[in-house]
């Protein structure tokens, strides 16, 4: 066994780790770096519970090898809040009861943020298709969609106020 040395950025911080050639990014995050916010629901890219961003792009971390992320920027749920201030999506998920058991929540939040980063004013259909790669078995998705709508609205009105001020 010979480990592979990887240098990467996770949530803005430089991180170095050594992993095996067959280790997924998810395994590295969870087992080597103690970042257990990303969950393994399937290990085959079907459930989205392990969602992270790689260079801003939504990715199932179970489908990427740890060795592949050398030199790339990783975003995980642990980096979503800004200091002690929750991201609007995180706040709205709590307010709208968009989680029951909460196992899928980190993945949904990362996916929803990636969606809003690319499309700040999505329609309900765009939200539903944007989140179709994430499985939730508790909520029936209703309250998740509403939380994302509410967060988008809040973020857009905050942006408009900022623009006006500027």
């Amino acid at each position: 066994m010979s480990g592979i040395h990887v240098t990467t950025k996770i949530n803005g911080d430089e991180v170095q780790f050594v992993c095996e050639a067959d280790e997924s990014l998810l395994d590295v995050l969870r087992n080597r770096l103690g970042l257990t916010g990303a969950k393994e629901g399937c290990g085959t890219g079907d459930c989205g519970a392990c969602s992270v961003t790689v260079d801003g792009r939504l990715t199932c971390s179970c489908l990427v090898l740890g060795a592949e992320v050398d030199g790339h920027d990783i975003g995980t749920i642990e980096g979503m809040a800004m200091g002690d201030e929750l991201h609007p999506l995180q706040k709205k998920f709590i307010e709208h009861a968009a989680l029951q058991c909460g196992i899928c929540t980190p993945g949904f939040l990362v996916a929803a943020k990636a969606l809003l980063d690319h499309n700040p004013e999505p329609t309900e259909t765009e939200i539903r298709f944007g989140l179709a790669g994430n499985l939730c078995r508790c909520t029936g998705y209703d309250k998740i969609v509403r939380a994302v709508q509410a967060a988008a609205e809040e973020m857009n009105s905050a942006k408009k106020i900022q623009q006006k001020v500027a």
Partner: peptide, 21 residues
């Protein structure tokens, strides 16, 4: 009434510890 659940913070920040964590 519909107050925020208190375990919500841990669950939206990835801090909540599940079986495999």
């Amino acid at each position: 009434t519909r107050p925020d659940r208190q375990d919500g913070f841990d669950k939206v920040t990835g801090r909540a510890k599940f079986g495999a964590d």
